Simulated scan of single mutants.
Amino acid sequence: MQIIRGHYLKMLIDIHVHSDNSSCSVMPASEIVARARSLGLDGVCITDHDTTAVLSQIQEGFQPDGLLVLVGMEYSTDEGDFLVYGDVESLVPGMDGRALLTSVIETGGAVVAAHPFRGWRPSDTGLFQSYPPSAIEVVNGRNTEAEDAQALELACHLALAHVSGSDAHRFDELGRFPTRFTCPISDRVDLVNALRQGMCRPGVLRSAALASAS
């Protein structure tokens, strides 16, 4: 995190990361925490699929190396997948998209529409007109450029905040597409407020991340 005259110039947090508590990931939570700072991240939010089991394996908050570690959840519904931040421990399982969006916002959380145009698991984006999420993931590490372009067009059309996420399941994916926050983040409350107030934007362009990996 860079600080100029007491102001935060940037804070890069990868807000879409899966530990091996998600069956699709090979990354132990302890290793995510150990490696993330060296990748240039200021923070990482572990968002496993429909579980907060990782809370028993890590300590949230700032780590000795300065990395901020937070826990969210990727919540699956028939209307799409949603990244949820805030009091994720209290989420009721089995909600549909409408109930989830309503519940999270009413209880003071933040919800991001994850990869809404992914070809094999698209979201019901018509839902967002009446039940808008806090933000839309317009850059996703596992999306195609075309899928991201559709997400960006939707976010602009609905005037919703833009975020990016690595959707990391392997260590070579971790930290590639963080979100840049323009305000200090020190806990879940700060993260929720920043997302709800739109104090965020994609931190790395897809072309730059792909070039650095080649």
Score class of each variant (00 low, 15 high):
2 Q>L: 14
202 P>N: 00
46 I>P: 00
31 E>H: 09
45 C>R: 05
14 D>V: 07
21 N>L: 10
11 M>Y: 04
49 H>G: 03
84 V>F: 05
8 Y>C: 07
127 L>D: 02
132 P>T: 04
199 M>R: 15
93 P>G: 03
130 S>M: 13
181 F>N: 04
13 I>K: 01
128 F>E: 00
63 Q>P: 09
75 Y>T: 03
56 S>E: 15
170 R>S: 14
108 G>C: 03
134 S>W: 00
70 L>A: 12
54 V>C: 07
65 D>V: 10
195 L>V: 10
35 R>Y: 07
189 V>D: 13
123 S>R: 03
194 A>M: 11
11 M>S: 10
199 M>T: 09
127 L>Q: 02
169 H>K: 13
118 R>F: 06
43 G>E: 05
100 L>W: 02
158 L>S: 05
65 D>Q: 14
211 A>L: 15
65 D>N: 15
56 S>N: 13
114 A>P: 03
135 A>H: 07
18 H>G: 06
81 D>F: 09
183 C>M: 13
9 L>G: 05
17 V>H: 00
113 A>C: 14
167 D>G: 14
64 P>W: 13
154 L>E: 10
89 E>V: 13
28 P>L: 11
43 G>F: 07
102 T>H: 12
79 E>Y: 00
119 G>M: 12
160 L>A: 09
58 I>C: 01
179 T>Y: 05
31 E>W: 06
117 F>D: 00
84 V>S: 00
129 Q>Y: 15
5 R>S: 14
23 S>L: 12
212 S>I: 04
62 F>Q: 08
24 C>P: 06
193 N>F: 07
49 H>W: 02
6 G>V: 11
48 D>Q: 02
119 G>Q: 13
142 R>E: 10
34 A>Q: 13
143 N>F: 03
204 V>K: 04
143 N>G: 08
149 A>P: 01
170 R>V: 11
213 A>G: 05
133 P>V: 05
